[in-house]
Design a protein around this nucleic acid. Structure first.
Length: 908
RNA sequence: GGGGAAGUGUCGGAAUGGGCAGACGAGCGUGACUUAGGAUCACGUGGGGCAACCCGUGCGGGUUCGAGUCCCGCCUUCCCCA
């Protein structure tokens, strides 16, 4: 049936969720994609352009609760309506390949993939926190948690986090490979988003020990700052928290954990938010210097990042700095400032006379305000400054140098600020001399009080290590590497790569999804359903409880089963799979929907027809919204890589080219939504203007990748244009018999130039997804043809070529009107099976060009000259133009710049 | 706070290997046809000036014979991340 000698083109547009009605946004995404699919077909490709429905998901259950309709019935009737609406678009969708993800013939293969991943060790079960409503006694999906206070969508009860056993897929095994985009042509934006999402960082895992010798592993990208780690922070959920918390702190810790569990990740990580945390009473030992450091818990540390514990280096990590300042924890600088800036504030009365003069003499810059000195110096001046300061400081006072060369200068000694011990000593002496600082808990807190110092107290850059025992003096560019080597030698740490990407949590505590094919056997434990027993059918008679709880948990028939291997009683897993699982492989399902339905599956089955796959895969062009950049588009890449490792496919990437369309907003500039009542209904537009006009307008009105607000007037322009095209082709013009004269050679050449120029423009724009300029090129061509129709060109061969070309170029965009005009002008069915017109560069070439003549870069003349004009002739013509003459009169021509075929610029 | 994209007439938007800014359309204006027009057709439409010309692509600099386009700094909006 398909001529396999022709090249193939698999064009795919993201499948819709069957929400009820087709939205103008669906049209905006799909119609231009269809235009391109049709274009490729005319270019001689066999084109696969399928459509289906992402049919599992939460709204179906909400409808069931609110209106008493079963999710299956609700979904299928929505699909029926949307399918009808989709057909009104006039897209070339191959409906024979339609795939609906909630049908058993589809989801048994979704389950089959689960079993394969399970066999490969890529699926595992782990405790993980989920949002849970204590009143409804159910877990909630992310979109069911509302508002700043995170309350339950249904009953308004504040949501809590609850630890549940859930299924994960090891997408992190592929993290490194997912960072490689060399085999795909995807928008830079998506590549960047995915790269950030995966978030690879290099550093070290370092083992700290609690005083009870519990190992606490932390990941750090800055092992060079280890000597500045003055405390540790664990995520409130960290498993060691309970064990390490001392009785006196237990109550406070429990209270804090409860608070933290109620917050969302975004809130917890916000840098805007005031830092919170509590000390758990326990201490750890910093393995590099054996310092005893306190252990805190704080919500800015996430269990999901790294190991859920951090070493806090307040001197060189912004969040740690803020935290330490607030809670009075020591802050010891261990990396020198790369800029070498040092500051010293000299309060009036702390120094003997002559200090300012001594500084001037030494060339150390300072400002004097109200008797106090504000000294800002560079590294080379610090030593000299300290000496001068010590010589001049009054016995009852002190001054300090901060930023670089950190030191506290007293008349009798200089104490370098180089560690916790020094910190204690400095604090004690200062408090003795100055009662105003009695409440300062740390040196840094004291310094922070001086406004002048604030910009040099903290930095997060790489630099020479200081105050770091044996590493002091190690330059910043090798520090990380050297420290890691040293840690490895001593067995207290090792090089490590950390990813922000987490394993994919696929468990959903919902009814309307593909059941996870696992049973819990009383004897054998967690066991997979045999491949042959798939699908695990979602019981159609399940009753959705009004709370929204998972109906499967209450369906006795579903719940109780036997494990065939031992014949013993077993309970089914009641979690279903994330709908992103269904959509991760739908482009394979389209090849042969519901493949081998009714036949048992096996471990070595393929979920799709291998012959179809061999011909069509992979997807050549994928179009859809950029909002899927970090979810669906990562999951589907992971899926394909896993399928490759199962031996199902022999390529690495599912979609070779990706292009994103923007979003059509409502007329008011807001997102269209039923609640706002600003939705544009495509059905109404189709009824009023016809599908071709709607398609044309969606192409013409916006930059496709950008989108923008709907403009109800703009569509009229496209409507009028198509009317003009209709009349242009069908209304009789001056007929050949009445022709007063034959067209001149020039007239014919001009018309053919229009024709071939337009072919080139439209073809180039098709390749570039520049749909708006396709329509404007066709409009301009139409305008030119309307003028030509008034002349003796009408009815000539060149005229017929022009009309035929117009219709062919129009065919992908406005398939109905193009077909109709094609038929009415006596051409053979179907226009859509015609080859795309060929562009002839010789015919498109201009004979006459407009030569722009500038004097000093300003346009002074426009000359019509032959396109092949020589440089000499062009210069001569330019210089002899009267207006040009006028502007260069009395001035010396210094230079004449000639851009062939474009302009002459006379410089005077 | 970090990263990315974008700022062009009244509006949607054209034009980037630097070379006629505002294509095409909407809107508006004038005219024609018409009993009528929210139909159709024609013409006009960045600002200033009678004109020659001058000024104009978020703001300020720079490179260049020449900058919407390249470089530096800033402002605004949107998106992503924290």
């Amino acid at each position: 049936m398909i001529d396999h000698s022709k090249p193939k083109h698999y064009a795919l547009t993201m499948l819709p969720y069957p929400s009820g009605d087709l939205h103008i946004g669906h049209w905006y995404a799909m119609a231009p994609s269809d235009v391109r699919a049709r274009y490729m077909r005319m270019r001689g490709y066999n084109v696969l352009f399928p459509m289906g429905f992402d049919a599992f998901g939460l709204p179906a259950e909400n409808a069931a609760i609110q209106r008493g309709i079963h999710p299956h019935k609700w979904t299928m009737s929505n699909i029926e309506r949307m399918r009808r609406q989709l057909k009104s678009m006039g897209a070339m969708f191959d409906w024979e390949r339609e795939a609906i993800s909630c049908l058993p013939g589809y989801y048994r293969w979704t389950q089959w993939f689960f079993l394969k991943l399970y066999d490969m060790g890529l699926a595992y079960r782990k405790k993980s926190p989920v949002d849970f409503c204590p009143k409804c006694n159910t877990t909630l999906a992310r979109e069911q948690v509302w508002g700043e206070d995170r309350h339950c969508e249904r009953c308004g009860t504040p949501v809590i986090k609850k630890e549940l056993e859930q299924w994960f897929w090891r997408i992190t095994d592929y993290a490194e490979e997912l960072l490689d985009f060399s085999k795909i042509d995807w928008p830079e934006r998506v590549v960047t988003m995915q790269t950030n999402w995966i978030g690879r960082s290099e550093g070290a895992n370092v083992t700290f020990l609690s005083e009870q010798e519990d190992p606490i592993i932390v990941f750090t990208t800055r092992p060079d700052t280890l000597w500045g780690a003055t405390f540790m922070v664990l995520a409130p959920e960290h498993p060691l928290v309970d064990k390490l918390t001392t009785p006196g702190h237990r109550e406070e810790v429990e209270e804090y954990k409860y608070q933290a569990a109620r917050q969302s990740e975004i809130e917890r990580l916000s840098t805007e938010k005031e830092k919170t945390g509590v000390f758990i009473g326990a201490y750890a030992v910093n393995p590099v210097n054996d310092e005893r450091i306190p252990i805190w818990i704080a919500d800015y540390v996430m269990m999901t990042y790294g190991t859920g514990a951090i070493m806090a280096v307040p001197s060189h990590d912004e969040r740690d700095f803020e935290f330490a300042l607030k809670f009075g924890l020591p802050i010891i600088p261990v990396i020198d400032r790369p800029d070498g800036v040092a500051k010293s504030f000299v309060m009036q009365g702390t120094m003997k006379d002559g200090f300012a003069d001594a500084l001037t003499e030494a060339g150390i810059p300072f400002e004097e305000r109200e008797g106090s000195l504000y000294v800002t110096m560079d590294r080379s001046q610090v030593e000299r400054y300290i000496a001068l300061a010590q010589a001049h400081v009054q016995p009852g006072s002190w001054i300090e140098v901060v930023g670089t060369g950190w030191a506290f200068i007293f008349a009798d000694e200089v104490i370098p600020f180089d560690g916790v011990e020094a910190e204690q000593k400095i604090l004690a002496r200062c408090k003795e001399l100055e009662p105003a600082v009695h409440d300062k808990r740390t040196v840094m807190e004291m310094l922070w009080g001086v406004e002048f110092y604030r910009d040099v107290l903290f930095h997060a850059e790489y630099g020479t290590m200081i105050n770091s025992g044996p590493f002091t003096g190690t330059p910043g560019d090798v520090a990380v590497k050297k420290v890691i080597e040293w840690l490895e030698e001593r067995g207290i740490g090792e090089f490590a790569v950390n990813y922000r990407l987490r394993d994919w949590l696929i468990s959903r505590q919902r009814y309307w999804g593909a059941p996870i094919p696992i049973v819990y056997c009383d004897k054998c434990g967690v066991v997979p359903v045999p491949y042959e027993d798939l699908p695990v059918i979602l019981p159609p008679d399940a009753v959705i409880p009004p709370t929204g709880e998972n109906a499967l948990k209450y369906h006795e028939g579903f719940l109780h089963t036997t494990w065939p291997k031992c014949g013993g009683p077993a309970t089914r897993e009641t979690d279903t799979m994330d709908t992103f699982v269904c959509s991760s492989w739908y482009h394979y399902a389209y090849l042969s929907p519901y493949y081998k339905e009714g036949e048992p599956a096996h471990a070595d089955s393929t979920p799709f027809d291998p012959d179809e796959a061999a011909y069509w895969l992979p997807v050549d062009v994928y179009t859809g919204g950029v909002e899927h950049a970090t979810m669906h588009l990562i999951y589907t890449r992971f899926f394909t890589k896993a399928m490759r490792d199962m031996g199902l496919v022999d390529f690495d990437e599912p979609m070779l080219m990706l292009r994103n369309q923007g979003i059509i907003l409502a007329e008011d500039g807001f997102r269209m939504s039923k609640s706002r009542g600003n939705v544009v209904a495509p059905d109404d537009l189709v009824e009023r203007y016809g599908a071709d006009t709607v398609r044309g307008y969606l192409m013409f009105g916006w930059r496709w990748e950008q989108g923008g607000p709907w403009d109800p007037h703009g569509i009229e322009g496209v409507y009028r244009w198509l009317h003009r095209v209709w009349n242009l082709v069908l209304e009789p013009g001056q007929s050949a018999s009445q022709r007063v004269s034959e067209p001149t050679e020039k007239e014919v050449a001009d018309l053919r130039r229009w024709t071939h120029k337009t072919i080139k423009r439209v073809t180039d724009d098709m390749e570039a997804f520049a749909f708006n300029t396709i329509i404007s090129a066709l409009m301009e061509f139409t305008n030119a043809l309307q003028k030509a129709k008034q002349t003796s060109l009408y009815g000539t061969e060149a005229w017929d070529e022009a009309i035929e070309t117009l219709l062919l170029l129009l065919a992908p965009c406005c398939p109905h009107i193009a077909e109709e005009l094609w038929a009415r002008t006596g051409r053979p069915y179907s226009i859509h099976l015609q080859p795309w017109p060929e562009y002839n560069p010789d015919l498109a070439a201009e004979e006459v060009i407009t030569l722009v003549v500038q004097v000093n870069g300003r346009v002074r003349a426009r000359l019509e000259v032959p396109a092949d004009i020589t440089e000499e002739a062009a210069r001569e013509a330019a210089l002899s133009d009267p207006n040009v003459q006028r502007h260069i009169a009395g001035k010396e021509v210094r230079k004449v710049i000639y851009v062939p075929g474009r302009l002459v610029n006379v410089v005077v």
